[in-house]
């Protein structure tokens, strides 16, 4: 069906963004306050997907998780998890690939808050978790929104990683960006145009709404 690649893209972006949010909040809050010597190394790893060709990530992912290799084979035998050419594999790769888009805004948001807010909360007897959820995160809503939207939009726009580790299996790994490539190769320009136009309009609308809200041109729903 012609809508399948679009629905798959949407599903991938939603699942990836949700999991990224759960992972990135603790990671970003650790990066924002740590004095550990490991910090530059972790920061570099988080930022790598910004500059690394997606094919490099895809290639090592393939090597690591292919059932032809020891680790991939072990995962398959013991847990029945197959990460190559499967939807869970796409999600995992997308999380790694979009990690900087979620972590960076949240980290810089947390770093910009005066440390005395956190200290005041601790002195009131509040735990680190309560301080994070009730004091820090509510004060960086624009940063969290930016992270969510950028990660979502970036996942929609993935191509290289998905092609390397997902292949082109209809209803499993054939997302919209792959479908466009596929249709163009088959000289089916009408279908390619259909997918392209929808992706173009969707990403435009998403990014525009972020700039409007964070630039205070329109009032966000939480105020």
């Amino acid at each position: 069906m012609i809508w399948d690649p679009l629905l798959l893209t949407l599903k991938l972006a939603l699942v990836t963004t949700f999991l990224l949010l759960i992972i990135s909040i603790p990671l970003a809050s650790w990066l924002a306050q740590t004095k550990s010597k490991l910090k530059p190394v972790i920061e570099t790893l988080v930022s790598m997907p910004l500059v690394l060709p997606p094919t490099v990530l895809g290639f090592y992912f393939l090597v690591a998780f292919s059932p032809g290799n020891a680790f991939g084979n072990w995962l398959n035998d013991w847990f029945g998890i197959k990460l190559v050419f499967s939807f869970p594999g796409l999600v995992l790769a997308s999380i790694l690939y979009s990690l900087p888009f979620m972590v960076h805004p949240i980290q810089s948001g947390l770093s910009s808050i005066s440390p005395s807010l956190k200290e005041a909360s601790y002195l009131m007897g509040k735990s680190k978790w309560e301080t994070l959820t009730k004091v820090l995160l509510p004060n960086i809503k624009p940063a969290v929104l930016t992270g969510i939207v950028l990660a979502f939009a970036h996942t929609i726009g993935e191509f290289g990683v998905v092609l390397m580790i997902g292949g082109n299996i209809p209803e499993v790994t054939k997302v919209a960006s792959i479908a466009i490539y596929d249709e163009v190769e088959a000289l089916n320009y009408a279908a390619a145009n259909f997918y392209s136009a929808i992706l173009f309009i969707t990403t435009f609308a998403i990014l525009l709404s972020v700039y409007l809200i964070n630039g205070r041109y329109i009032k966000p729903f939480w105020k």
Partner: peptide, 17 residues
């Protein structure tokens, strides 16, 4: 920990939420 001392603290920048 600061949480266990029950100290009231007024910061120079007030630190109001």
């Amino acid at each position: 920990k600061p949480q266990e001392r029950n100290v009231g603290f007024v910061f120079q920048d007030y630190a109001l939420f």
